[in-house]
Amino acid sequence: MRPDPVVEFWLGMGAIAAALAVALLLAFPPAWMDHRIGAVANFGNVSFLGEGSSVSGDGYVWGTVTKIEPVKGHYRVHMKLKPGLELAANQGLALEQANPLQPAYLTVVRQCKAVPGVALQAGCCPERLSAASPEGAERGLASCGRIPNLIDQAKDIGTVAKTRIDDIGKTVSALNAKLGPLMDKASATLDTSKATMTSAGITSARAQALLANDNVANLSKVLASTQATMDRVKTTSATIDDLLQNKKEQLDASITNLSNVLATTAATMPGVVDNLQKSAEDLRAITGQIRQEPTSLVRRRERSDPSFVDPAPEK
C-alpha cells in the first residue's frame, strides 16, 4: 500500500525540524543544559586574552573565558569551567602567552619559592596569589598575574640595564655633590693654615729684628732659618691650594660630563635595542633577497683581449 503523500511530506518536514532543533541545542545549549560552573578571577593585565580563551590545567582544557570586565584598577575575568577543577591553597590561575603571535590563555600554576637571580620556573606563579571574591553563583578563583613571554623578558633586560645605568648616574651625581663641599672645606683649611703660617712668619721676623739689635748672632741665624722654612711651607701651601682649586674645577667638569654621558646612554638604550631588532629583521630580509636573486649581486664584466697585442695561441 502506497503511503499518503501529504503524510509523507509532513513526516519529512518534521524530521528536518527535529534535526535543526537538536543542532541548535548542541550549538547553543540553554542554561539548564549547561552543567559548567561559573568562576571569576582578578587580573591586572589581560593583554591578548579574550572571550573564548581557554582555561587549562595539567594539560587539560577545563573551560573558556566568557567575559572580561574592567573594574577599578584591574579586570574581572569570568569563565565557565567543567566540574572537577579544584585549586589547592597554593595554586591559582595565571595568564600565559607562550607564542606572541597567538592569543593568551589561563593556566593553573602553583606558588613557588622565589630565588633571587634565578628565572621563573615553568608552572610557577609569576606574582603573589590573589584571591577573588565570589560573584553570585560564580566561584572566586585565586590568580597570580601574567607569565612573562619572550618579548616581556627582552623588555625586562633593557629595563634592568637602563635602571642600572640610571643608578650609576645618580651615584656619580651624589658623589659630585658630596665632593664639591669637601673640596671647598679643604680649600678653606688650607687658607687658614696659610694665614697662620704668614702670621708666624711675621712674628719670627719681628723677633729676629729685636734680637739682631742685641747682637745675638747665633740666635738670629736660627730664627732666619726658621723664617725661611716657614716661607717655604707657605709657598708650598699656596701651591697645593692652587692645585686643588684647579683640580676641583677639572674634577667637577669631568664628573658632570660622565654623569651626562651615562644619562644619555640610559636614555638611548631602548632605542638601541629597537634598532638591533630592526637590523636583524633587515638582515633577514636581505638574506632572503640574496637567496632569491643570487645573480643580481654578481658583477659580470665582459672581457676580450686587445686587438693590438698578439693573440693567445690556441691550444
Binding site: R301, E302, D305, P306, F308, V309
Partner: peptide, 14 residues
C-alpha cells in the same frame, strides 16, 4: 682600443 680611448676594457687572457 685606439678608436675609443675612453672605453676602458679588461683583457680576457692577459
Amino acid at each position: 682600443e685606439a678608436g675609443a680611448p675612453d672605453d676602458t676594457r679588461q683583457a680576457a687572457t692577459i
